[in-house]
């Protein structure tokens, strides 16, 4: 492992820029500071893993990065847009355009086919049906499920369901793919399958943020951040391949 040293010629703007990010939860009278001043920049094409013990604030960070929640203080710039001050409608649009989510519980709609699930983000983007179907089909083929497009989630294995979720995350060509414990509900075979998938995406240029508590999963990423008690411990470490 070596401390990150960036190529000085890399002038690309960061996709994600967090500065002094704090998040405080209020439960009744009790205040709990889940994020305690995180600074972090993630650049296009990076594959970042965030690791840390349970309760350290990984999911909280993921919610912030995914525009599902807002910071109590600090600044979050996503693809050049300051997200910290956005209202709900603007946040919804930011999620739609910039973020592709992969959840631990897959979160597919059982009433829709695989294709229908992949189309969903495009529905909210207002894309016309024909174009939508075509793009969703391409995304499904990319995750190797072109032949399962008409299956409902109940007719797919866990690994296949997660691949549908990955296709759904890709279909809008987001600035970043956020995956929170994407292999948490999968057996070792499917885990390899899904991680291989993320490797391929990374190789094709996608920016990926992976949250995990398994070190062998984190080992696949280019950079690993360690979270403890809502803070990054040490600088991001680059994994030597």
């Amino acid at each position: 492992m070596t401390v990150i040293t960036r190529d000085p010629l890399d002038v690309a703007a960061p996709v994600i820029e967090l500065s002094g990010a704090r998040k405080t939860y209020h439960t009744g009278d009790i205040e709990f500071e889940a994020l305690r001043g995180i600074d972090c920049r993630i650049f296009p094409g990076e594959y970042v893993a965030i690791v840390g013990p349970s309760g350290s604030g990984k999911s909280t960070l993921m919610n912030i990065l995914g525009c599902l929640d807002v910071l109590t203080s600090g600044r979050y710039v996503l693809a050049g847009e300051d997200v910290s001050q956005m209202d709900e409608v603007a946040l919804a649009s930011a999620r739609n355009r910039r973020i592709g989510f992969v959840f631990q519980q897959f979160h597919l709609l059982s009433s829709l086919t695989a294709l229908g699930n992949v189309e969903l983000p495009l529905v909210y983007a207002g894309v016309a049906p024909a174009e939508r179907r075509e793009r969703a089909m391409v995304a499904l083929q990319r995750v190797g499920l072109g032949d399962k497009s008409r299956n409902h989630p109940g007719q797919l294995s866990g690994g296949q369901q997660q691949r549908v979720a990955i296709a759904r995350a890709l279909v809008t060509e987001p600035a970043i793919v956020l995956a929170d414990e994407p292999t948490g509900n999968l057996d070792s075979h499917s885990t390899r399958d899904v991680l291989g998938m993320l490797d391929d995406l990374h190789a094709e240029g996608s920016t990926i943020v992976l949250i995990t508590h398994e070190s062998d999963v984190a080992a696949r990423a280019g950079t690993v951040y360690n979270v403890t008690d809502g803070q990054f411990v040490g600088a991001g470490t680059e994994i030597a391949k």
Binding site: G66, L68, E88, V89, A92, S93, R95, N96, R97, F101, H107, L109, L120, P121, Y124, A125, R168
Partner: peptide, 16 residues
């Protein structure tokens, strides 16, 4: 509730 959450995560505005 979960479906609503998912739809919002995928970009559904409150009005949608």
């Amino acid at each position: 509730t979960r479906e609503i959450g998912l739809r919002k995560a995928l970009g559904a505005a409150p009005a949608n």
